[in-house]
């Protein structure tokens, strides 16, 4: 599928990597990706290095993830945004809720 997950050896940094398209077709896989998050995780990173297309359902998925993990002390990062994707995140004021880089 167009989604990969990765965790550091010490189990603290969990990364979800998306492919070129981050849209509603990823709803299930994306939720699945963080559903069994190991207890030691401190940082959840969404890596958008490859993502060229994004729609508002992707924004919904990101917020949904934050909401469903809200009971835990986690830092959420959105990383490697391409300029066009960064623009959409900026328009939607996601910089208030995520570390975007």
């Amino acid at each position: 599928m167009g989604l990969t997950t990765d965790i550091t050896l010490d189990n603290t940094h969990f990364t979800i990597g998306l492919d070129e398209k981050f849209d509603f077709a990823k709803v299930h896989d994306f939720k699945e990706a963080y559903s069994a998050l190991p207890p030691d995780v401190q940082v959840v990173e969404v890596d958008l290095a490859k993502t060229e297309y994004m729609d508002s359902s992707a924004l919904g998925m990101l917020l949904n993830m934050q909401k469903s993990l809200s009971g835990r002390d986690l830092t959420f990062q959105i990383t490697h945004c391409r300029p066009q994707v960064a623009r959409i995140l900026k328009i939607s004021r996601f910089d208030k809720k995520f570390d975007i880089s």
């Binding site: 729609d55 508002s56 924004l59 919904g60 917020l63 949904n64 909401k67 959409i88 328009i91 939607s92 004021r93 208030k96 809720k97």
Partner: peptide, 16 residues
Amino acid sequence: GDSAAFGRGLPLIFEL
């Protein structure tokens, strides 16, 4: 509002 998980499509359309 800003934190709702929906209703972001229209503002995006207006902005883009």
